[in-house]
């Protein structure tokens, strides 16, 4: 075997080994942005939601609303629906006319409550959710949420809960930006369900349902 041929062999084997090794890199973690051999039009001259735009000092392509302006369709003139207050400015104790009380509303309220409220207020509304409790790192909430079963809160009108969800109260921050208005009413209705379930007496149960309860067949 000549020296030249053995060199070629070494190069070939080295090349194959490199390929085989780098083939094993599929899915490896990397902090560096992906390298696309062909960028085509992957990044075009328009801005997607929350993209950055270095033209602005704060690098936000999405611009904050100009003070004193209202976006089209977001006037929120209906006081009952958007503020939970009647014509007299007091908190209402009824759902807005556009929202009907039915099983679907309460189901929606229960599910949305589980997402947005239960972490602090607890699934049953007694105020000892997982965030409220001390953890391995965090202290737990410094001010604990009250229980909805508290007589003070049992006496509050429905609009109060809508108002607190929307605008916050004491250490609770407003959720108006995070939860759509219909869902806030659904949650307020679900809070009422939790309260009623606490104070309900046997006489409150409809006779048909009471029969199920007595026979032990309640679902």
């Amino acid at each position: 075997m000549t020296a030249q041929r053995s060199n070629t062999l070494v190069v070939a084997v080295g090349l194959l080994a490199t390929l085989a090794l780098s083939a094993g890199c599929r899915g490896n973690k990397s902090k560096d942005p992906p390298i696309h051999p062909n960028w085509n039009m992957d990044d075009q001259q328009y801005f997607q939601a929350q993209e950055d735009n270095d033209w602005f000092p704060d690098h936000r392509a999405q611009r904050p609303l100009v003070a004193g302006t209202v976006a089209r369709g977001l006037l929120k003139a209906d006081d009952h629906l958007y503020r939970g207050r009647g014509a007299d400015g007091r908190l209402v104790d009824t759902l807005p006319p556009s929202i009907t009380l039915d099983e679907a509303l309460l189901d929606r309220g229960e599910r949305r409550y589980a997402i947005y409220c239960a972490p602090c207020h607890e699934q049953n509304g007694r105020g000892n959710g997982i965030i409220a409790q001390p953890g391995s790192v965090a202290t737990g909430l410094l001010v604990k949420p009250p229980s909805y079963m508290d007589p003070r809160l049992q006496a509050m009108p429905l609009g109060y809960f809508f108002d607190v969800i929307s605008n916050g109260k004491a250490t609770m921050r407003p959720y108006a930006a995070q939860i759509p208005v219909e869902d806030r009413w659904a949650i307020a209705a679900w809070v009422r369900v939790l309260q009623v379930s606490e104070r309900a007496a046997k006489a409150d149960i409809p006779p048909a349902e009471l029969g199920k309860l007595n026979s032990g067949g309640a679902q």
Binding site: C120, I131, A138, L142, T171, M172, R173, Y175
Partner: peptide, 16 residues
């Protein structure tokens, strides 16, 4: 989420 969503909880607890 905006920073406000983080602060829903973090304004009212301490990470030491």
């Amino acid at each position: 989420p905006p920073a406000g969503t983080c602060m829903n909880c973090h304004a009212n607890l301490n990470l030491g």
